[in-house]
Amino acid sequence: MIKPLEGVTVVEFAGLGPAPFCGMLLAQMGARVICIGREGAHAPTGPLARAREYVALDLKRPDGIARALDLIASADALIEGFRPRVMERLGLGPQVCHARRASLVYGRMTGWGQTGPLAHTAGHDINYIAISGALHAVGLAGGEPVVPLNLVGDFGGGGMLLAFGVVAAILRARSTGEGCVVDAAMTDGAAMLMSMMYGFYAAGQWQDERGTNLLDGGAPFYRTYRCADNRYIAVGCIEPQFYAAFMKGIGAEDLLELPQRDRANWPRVQARIAEALSTRTRDEWTAVFEGSDACVTPVLSLAEAPLDAHNTARGAFAQSGGAWQPQCAPRFVSYGDEGA
């Protein structure tokens, strides 16, 4: 298996959520990740803590700081997820660490960023995505904003972008010999993930009202529907040929006479689709559309997803300690082995 970050060493300061997620991503890509935790505390456990070396240090003592600096001096990158100035107060701020290793990449993960009027206030994923516009955009028409788990702030706009930034900065450091600070803010990241929607909005192609647009559940051909067994299927037949295959599958070919993108028709079309899909169970509809290009899939639960035939064939999940864990993504494949 190709491990593209083999030979890279990262020092991670133990924390919660997005910074450990970043460390997990780097470790899965082959980096040696050394996690520094608090002396007397239990080593982190769970999926986000996998593939680490763990060192317990008392960072309130000079010998603990000295040991941390020794580890940092031989590392390519450092990642931390504390509030601004915490690492500086410990004596492990960017300037101190840079003095020990000029090529060090110093990755900082916060909600608000290192600067700005909110930088030193408390917050969580929901707060960070709220000011980015992302939270406002998710939910049913006329309903409340729906919290999209902590995927958009903590993990997508946070830990994943920190990992990307750290790798990009390591590439720069290897060519220039000079490291830098990566200031990863979940507010910035969540806003960047909304780039396409902001582009549509600027072009007049997106209404600033959730649940009324092409990709937010407003379109009858891009949303979920309840089936006879109170489980759901996901319908995503945006393109005309896929839309036609879907309508044929549910026995509603007469609706093809109505222009697919005409919003005036959407309520009528949605009601008709909902009525049709309510007549069979989720798995029955899955069987109807199996192998077709109608873009229909079952909405699987956390218990069901690891057992799905496609996920199983891909090895997307594996058992660890009696529990299913998602595996490394993306994958790296040698030329010539792409179809293996």
Rank of each mutant, 00 (worst) to 15 (best):
G236F: 02
K248Y: 07
T212G: 02
Y243D: 04
T297Q: 09
T297H: 07
S278F: 08
I273M: 07
I250V: 15
L256Q: 14
L214K: 14
R263I: 12
R280Q: 01
F242N: 12
P259W: 12
G251F: 00
S292G: 07
A245R: 10
A276T: 00
A234G: 08
Q207P: 06
A287D: 01
A271L: 10
K248P: 06
M247K: 09
Q270V: 01
P259K: 14
L300D: 03
V235E: 04
R210M: 10
P306I: 06
P220I: 02
E304K: 05
N213T: 08
Y243W: 15
V269A: 02
R210V: 01
C295G: 05
E284P: 00
N230H: 11
A264S: 14
A244H: 09
M247N: 13
Q207L: 13
G291P: 05
F246N: 03
Y243H: 15
P240D: 13
A287P: 00
N265I: 01
G217V: 03
F221Y: 15
E275T: 08
Q205S: 11
E290T: 11
I273F: 02
W266K: 08
A202P: 02
I273V: 15
D283Q: 07
M247L: 15
E253V: 10
E304G: 03
Q207I: 11
E239L: 09
N265P: 03
A244R: 12
V296T: 04
G218N: 09
G211R: 06
F246D: 01
P259E: 14
D283H: 09
R268D: 10
A294T: 06
G199V: 12
V288K: 00
G204T: 11
D208G: 09
T286P: 03
M247W: 09
I273R: 02
V288Q: 02
R210Y: 06
F246L: 13
L214Q: 15
Q241P: 04
I238V: 14
L302R: 11
D208I: 03
F221I: 08
E253W: 03
R226M: 08
D293S: 13
R268L: 08
D293L: 11
